[in-house]
Simulated assay, not measured.
Amino acid sequence: MLVLRSSPTSPFGRKVKIAASELGLTDRIEVVMADTNDPSESLRQQNPLGKIPTLVLEDGTTLFDSRVVVEYLDALAGGGKIIPTGTTRFAQLRLQALADGICDAGLLQVYEGRFRPEEGRNANWLAHQDGKIGRALATLEADPPASEGRPQIGEIALACALGYLDLRFEGKWRAAHPRLVAWLDAFAARVPSFESTRFKG
């Protein structure tokens, strides 16, 4: 049995869970909660960076980060299932990188508020991260990805990024990005695991 160390709110963990579902591997993976802030957490032995998601293989070796984990799962399922091998490969990897960048910038804003006292928060730093998200969303709004057939890794990553913005930033992105809203609605309708992996706390 593979073991996925993650948390219910992690957009990167959610990406792995959706990928596993689309690849028919859910029954082969046990999801085990990880607390990245706990110094005694075994995650720090499984992944020296202490980050999630981390996948523990059956022989005890580990894989991280989410991009490596989903590539492993795709190969385990036979290859070329959610990560294309042909001409669309790099378009999907680019989309994944853009979506992951949205998550990274959002996480940095969340951490600034969570770990730094209010009087010490850096407004310029927060604006810098918000600018990354704004530019990425504008690029995607101008040309949303296709939404048909089995979802590819870039689309899965984008759905998780938008879901994270809904979770942590009250969905404020939606008002200015109607085409992305429509895209996410269509994605959710054809990918049931998007809803089943949504944090409901």
Rank of each mutant, 00 (worst) to 15 (best):
P48S: 10
S10A: 04
W183K: 02
S66F: 11
F194W: 15
A20T: 07
G50S: 01
L98R: 12
A182S: 11
D27S: 12
P8L: 09
A77C: 03
K132D: 05
R94V: 13
E119A: 11
V191G: 01
R179K: 14
S147R: 15
L49S: 11
C103M: 12
P84V: 08
F187T: 00
A186K: 07
S6N: 06
V181C: 04
S21N: 07
E118M: 11
R135S: 12
V181Q: 10
A19R: 01
L167H: 08
A188R: 14
E170R: 14
N47Q: 01
F194L: 05
D104T: 06
T88I: 11
T62C: 02
P117C: 09
R44A: 02
R116K: 14
R179M: 04
S10K: 01
S42I: 15
S193Q: 05
G131P: 08
G106S: 09
V56R: 02
Q45A: 14
D35W: 02
K132P: 07
I83R: 01
E155V: 01
L43K: 03
F199I: 12
S6C: 03
V31G: 09
P11Q: 04
D166V: 10
S7H: 13
V31P: 06
A161I: 01
E71A: 14
L158G: 08
A91Y: 09
W183A: 03
V31A: 12
A123N: 09
F187V: 01
G163H: 02
G171V: 11
H128F: 14
V69Q: 03
L180Y: 10
Y164T: 08
L76H: 07
P151F: 01
A34H: 01
T87S: 12
T36P: 00
K81L: 11
Q96C: 05
M33T: 15
S147V: 15
I102T: 02
R135A: 14
E195N: 12
A146Y: 03
P151Q: 05
I82A: 06
G149I: 13
G120K: 11
